[in-house]
């Protein structure tokens, strides 16, 4: 398994392109070789300053009729109402979401993870997650990082323009804005294995 360099977030490279290609679901495409690689993590931060952001806010149910992940792209966070937040403008260029507690509660729809994935947001950092959303993130080889409230507060204080770099080996993240903030995070070893494998399907196919 090839791993991209840590600390070089969101750099488009061949692996990334291949990965994207493999993750898309185009019903009429011919069979492709089954190959999955780890995603890249980090980038400019989108701050969502509210707890309990639910999956209906992330991707409304009316878009669940889309049959490819790419088609979800324009509808990211469409029903999320936050002061001064315009999903079409504010999600552009973001690579990381930083938010509060119980992110992704509600429905089991993995569309809520895919809509981030197709917008190149592969990391969500929160105080806590709803179980299904968190599992869906790791199952897609993406990062759902839980941090204590004081670290989340510190991340919000780095702003407003912040870029986060993530070192998977050292389980450390660095946020650079008007200030700089560094902290450790902990991944459950199984969740980390899923990320390294590029997701649960790749992991399970080899093992079971």
């Amino acid at each position: 398994m090839k791993r991209p360099q840590p600390n070089k977030p969101n750099k488009p490279n061949k692996l990334n392109k291949l990965n994207k290609l493999n993750k898309l679901n185009k019903p009429n495409e011919p069979n492709k070789p089954y190959e999955v690689v780890m995603k890249t993590f980090g980038g400019p931060v989108l701050f969502l300053d509210r707890s309990n952001i639910n999956t209906d806010e992330i991707i409304p149910a009316k878009y669940l009729t889309e049959n490819t992940k790419e088609d979800l792209k324009p509808f990211i966070l469409e029903d999320l109402k936050l002061p001064g937040f315009d999903p079409a403008v504010n999600t552009r260029g973001a690579g990381v979401i930083v938010t509060r507690a119980n992110f992704g509660c509600g429905s089991s729809r993995e569309h809520a993870v895919w809509v981030f994935e197709v917008n190149n947001i592969n990391v969500v950092i929160a105080e806590s997650f709803a179980r299904i959303f968190r599992q869906n993130m790791f199952n897609c080889g993406m990062l759902a990082i839980e941090l204590p409230k004081k670290d989340i507060d510190a991340l919000f204080a780095v702003g407003p323009e912040v870029t986060v770099s993530i070192d998977m080996d050292k389980e450390t993240l660095i946020a650079r804005g008007t200030k700089e903030f560094t902290c450790k995070f902990t991944l459950n070893s199984f969740d980390k294995d899923l990320v390294l494998a590029g997701g649960w399907l790749a992991y399970a196919d080899k093992k079971y």
């Binding site: 089991s108 729809r109 993995e110 993870v113 179980r131 299904i132 599992q135 869906n136 199952n139 897609c140 459950n188 199984f190 997701g199 649960w200 399907l201 399970a204 196919d205 079971y208």
Partner: peptide
């Protein structure tokens, strides 16, 4: 338990699912 589509996909293919 409710699960996402990837868990469902592995469930369909392998008959297994992971839980904490």
């Amino acid at each position: 338990a409710g699960v996402g589509t990837t868990d469902l996909e592995v469930g369909i293919l392998k008959g297994v699912c992971s839980f904490r």
